Computed example of a mutant assay.
Amino acid sequence: MLKLLSYPLTSIYYLLFGLTLVIFHPIQWFCFNVFGYKTHKLSVDILQFCLLKCTHVLGTRFSFYNPHTISTESPLIIVANHQSLYDISPIMWYMRKHHTKFISKMELGKGIPSVSYNLRHGGSVLIDRKNSRQSLPAIKAFAQYIEDTKRAAVIFPEGTRSKNGNPKPFQTKGLKLLFKHVPSALVVPISINNSWKMLRYGKFPMGLGTHIKFEVHEPVKVSEFKNNPLDLIAQIETTIKNNISV
């Protein structure tokens, strides 16, 4: 019965989701080209809030548990497991004061209203995961940008999304580059639970009544692991995975 109900509700959700992206695309363009970064960033924040509200049609709830006072005066490297695209807007909204930027695959940089525009113009980096000659210098330049601006880089080191919540091994190359070129950063591990359940039936229909939970763990200074980046990666991977329930 619940799955049957999800068919009409999913249709309504996709309509709202698509309209939100289409409406905010020219708003972003106007804000960026007329007023600059700060106003564009505000439009992106409001977009994320609206996207979260769209999911309420599906009975989706979000809990974002962050007991830590994290300075905005230090660059951040936010590291999280990855279960679905519904991981992204909550991190952008709830961590918005840190100006979150993403390492994203090249394909997302075109064709998606609002999303592609923000990835191209909002400070994120687009990489070709199959071409290290492009991706590694791009990540290096992105890391320098994060270091200089004291903003937040978000990385999902599993590389691809988990379809059942079970985390995949972390890939170390991108993290090591970030640690090397953002030496003053705080690493902020986040465990994400249940967002994969939004797609438990596939893209259509979608899962109903999902409670997506985010837990922000104690930040760690990159400088404390200057000579042992693999130890830092192992520590944050363990922290994140120990707090994932499947």
Rank of each mutant, 00 (worst) to 15 (best):
Y145C: 05
W93A: 14
F30I: 13
F170M: 06
N166L: 13
T72A: 11
W29L: 03
I27E: 05
I240S: 06
Q134F: 10
N193E: 06
F204R: 11
R151M: 13
H25M: 09
Y117L: 02
F24L: 08
K226H: 09
A141Q: 08
L186I: 08
V187G: 10
S195P: 02
S11N: 13
S191M: 09
C50D: 06
Y201W: 07
G59D: 07
L4A: 12
L15Q: 00
G209A: 12
T69F: 13
Y86K: 01
Q235S: 12
K197E: 15
L16R: 14
Y65S: 14
P90N: 01
H98R: 04
P137H: 09
K41N: 09
K140L: 12
I236N: 08
L51E: 03
W196R: 09
P229R: 09
G202P: 03
T239G: 00
L5M: 08
L15D: 02
Y94H: 04
F35S: 05
F170K: 02
L232I: 06
N166W: 13
I77D: 04
N227D: 14
G123Q: 07
D87Q: 00
C54A: 08
Y86M: 13
P183E: 01
L58T: 07
F204H: 12
S195C: 00
K140T: 15
F225C: 05
K53H: 13
R61N: 14
E158Q: 10
V220K: 10
V188E: 02
Y7E: 04
I212C: 04
P205M: 04
S63L: 12
P137K: 10
I27M: 07
C31V: 10
F49C: 10
I244Q: 12
D231L: 12
N243H: 15
K197I: 10
V222D: 03
P169E: 00
M206E: 06
D87V: 02
P157G: 06
L5W: 10
V125A: 05
K173W: 05
I91D: 04
T69M: 14
I139M: 08
A152V: 14
K213H: 12
I127A: 10
T60S: 07
P8K: 04
N242K: 14
M206W: 06
A143E: 04
M206P: 06
S135D: 02
F17C: 07
S89Y: 06
K140V: 10
K180I: 00
A138D: 01
N164W: 09
I46Y: 07
K203N: 13
I233T: 04
A138E: 09
A138T: 01
E218K: 15
E215D: 14
F204I: 12
N131L: 06
T55W: 03
P189Y: 11
A152R: 11
I190H: 03
V79P: 02
P157V: 13
H211I: 10
Q83Y: 01
S245A: 12
E147F: 11
R161C: 12
P169L: 05
I155Q: 05
I233W: 03
S184P: 00
H217K: 10
V115M: 09
I23S: 04
S43D: 00
T210P: 04
F64G: 14
Y201Q: 00
K213E: 15
V187E: 01
S191V: 07
S11K: 09
S71C: 11
L58E: 09
T239A: 03
K213T: 13
F142M: 09
E158S: 03
Y86P: 00
Q134V: 03
Y37I: 05
